[in-house]
Design a protein around this nucleic acid. Sequence first.
DNA 1: TAACTTTATCGTAATATTGCAATATTAATA
DNA 2: TATTAATATTGCAATATTACGATAAAGTTA
Lengths: 111, 111
Amino acid sequence: MMGTTKTDFYTDRQNELAILIKALGHPARIAIIQHLLKVDSCICGDLVNELPLAQPTVSQHLKELKNAGLIKGSVEGNAICYCLDENGFEKVKSFFQNINDFIEKKKTSCC
Amino acid sequence: MMGTTKTDFYTDRQNELAILIKALGHPARIAIIQHLLKVDSCICGDLVNELPLAQPTVSQHLKELKNAGLIKGSVEGNAICYCLDENGFEKVKSFFQNINDFIEKKKTSCC
DNA sequence: TAACTTTATCGTAATATTGCAATATTAATA
DNA sequence: TATTAATATTGCAATATTACGATAAAGTTA
């Protein structure tokens, strides 16, 4: 049990948010998302050339983003076409919105 | 070098975002932020009672959030008073804003 | 000053993550 | 059907993270 996150003691929402946000907490995965925003379309493999990583490592990062629900992929010939998945981002949206609203309102910082 | 993130090959912005977002990618640290939003003030130690973790572990999570620039603490007697740090959240704001704008515009999902 | 309260740090065990070579899989094409 | 192209999976080494007991540090109070 040592070294393992105690997921059972948090709310489903807290665990859900943590999984989603954790999936974004790596520069390679940030770079993948940014690339998807930039090219404004699907990416099919050329991503390996964009990143300083070997193909299996890129594949692994894509899998993590996909499992989290932040990107989705569809088979396109013998390639796979990835794009942003709005479902995942929708789920973190309100969390950051709440924080931004809080900060906006609370101009009087207490610390 | 194996097992280590290749930070040198990413942009400063990508590394900065990854550090900030990674700091939020744990249910205990999500819970800490949510608690700060809820109580609408500083927290002084009572946080240990809110979380299913021992005091040293809570202290460690607080340190991570503080190092990332997401919370700040001030000495208040023999206690420490923590609250949200707007600087850190300001830095991730535009990233998620860009994604939300992108999703809003691009109603025609390609996958 | 001694006892107490609160938070931080150290040391360590257990687990998770990162990255890659080798290999498998799947689909297109010659 | 063999070959090629693109992506996924496996296995493994190195590093990072998580959690906690023991202890230290710093302030408060009796």
